[in-house]
């Protein structure tokens, strides 16, 4: 096991940020923490990077304890915080040189590792970091986190606020880095990015709901999922919620995702029911569930079990 965390708890005053977090990450794995804002991802990452102390529980990285061996960890981990945390008044090149220097290395020494990423921003190396676009800032930040050839890369929401094209590029870079032997843990609020990870942990309210490969998580979705659409989406949602056999109804873009209490829904019955409510152009299709569907399903299950 490269990273192993056991029963981590963390409170901020009376707010519970993390509750009983346990997980393991293998060497050379791209591991994702997926969850909305406030799920506890940043707190967890700060504990792993030795910036915060957990109230309870323990964690090791490559066998180093996050409390006792914090100095060793700080030498061997590349950390990219959620907020852009480079020096805005320093140029691209100066930032990179600075981080290389404080980690006791040079750009040349580890140029191989960052080359693919750095060539994209190299034309702007004299530009101040504060004047870069969002995507380029992230590439620079990644370069800086990588410059000392860390064994573990910790990336806190690296794609938040970045355009779709840059996000795609960014994930490709991460997979390349993993292929070069770097273990990566990354957090993201975007559910669609889960499928790009080797394994993911779904987080909500300071708890991990499930850990598995994205394929497994999707495969374990307990019901058949339908995308439903009609000319009057607003009343459609209301009507679906009142359909006697409904289990869940959620808006996904232009469709409503619908599951029935039974594994499979009675599509014909549903269509009749909706026609009876004066809906036109009704479309009902069976679809493959995404991570987001699984996430919502897990959330509903959890809150139901909490209430009981």
């Amino acid at each position: 096991m490269f990273i192993s965390a056991k029963n981590i708890f963390k409170n901020y005053g009376s707010t519970q940020a993390l509750s009983d977090i346990s997980f393991e990450v293998n060497k050379n794995e791209l591991f994702g923490f997926i969850g909305p804002d406030g799920a506890g991802k940043t707190t967890l990452f700060r504990i792993l990077t030795t910036l915060l102390l957990a109230d309870k529980g323990s964690a090791t990285i490559n066998g180093w304890d996050v409390v006792n061996d914090f100095k060793t960890i700080r030498n061997n981990v590349g950390y990219m915080p959620g907020r852009f945390s480079l020096y805005q008044d320093l140029s691209v090149e100066e930032n990179l040189t600075f981080f290389a220097t404080i980690f006791g290395t040079t750009i040349e020494e580890n140029y191989d590792l960052i080359r693919d990423i750095y060539v994209q921003i190299e034309p702007f190396k004299k530009r101040l970091a504060g004047k870069l676009s969002g995507g380029m800032k992230q590439k620079l930040a990644l370069s800086c986190a990588l410059i000392h050839a860390p064994e573990l890369l910790v990336l806190d929401e690296p794609t938040t606020g970045v355009d779709a094209v840059s996000r795609k590029e960014f994930w490709e870079m991460l997979r390349n880095l993993r292929d070069k032997g770097i273990t990566i843990i990354v957090s993201t609020p975007y559910m669609d990015e889960a499928s790009l990870c080797d394994r993911v942990a779904l987080m909500q309210n300071g708890k991990i709901m499930q850990i598995d490969t994205p394929q497994h998580i999707v495969g374990e979705f307990p019901r058949k999922l339908y995308a439903v659409r009609s000319s009057n989406m607003y009343s459609l949602k209301d009507d679906l919620l009142h359909f006697p056999e409904q289990h869940s109804v959620h808006l996904f873009g232009q469709y409503l995702h619908f599951t029935a209490r039974e594994r499979e829904a009675d599509i014909l019955g549903l269509r009749h029911y909706l026609e009876g409510k004066n809906h036109q152009n009704i479309i009902i299709e069976a679809i493959e569930p995404g991570i987001e569907d699984c996430f919502i399903e897990l959330m509903t299950e959890n809150s139901a079990s909490n209430e009981n």
Partner: peptide, 13 residues
């Protein structure tokens, strides 16, 4: 304030 202290702390400095 800018969050750069976070990175400095997670460095061997």
């Amino acid at each position: 304030e800018l969050g750069t202290m976070e990175i400095l702390l997670v460095s061997p400095l």
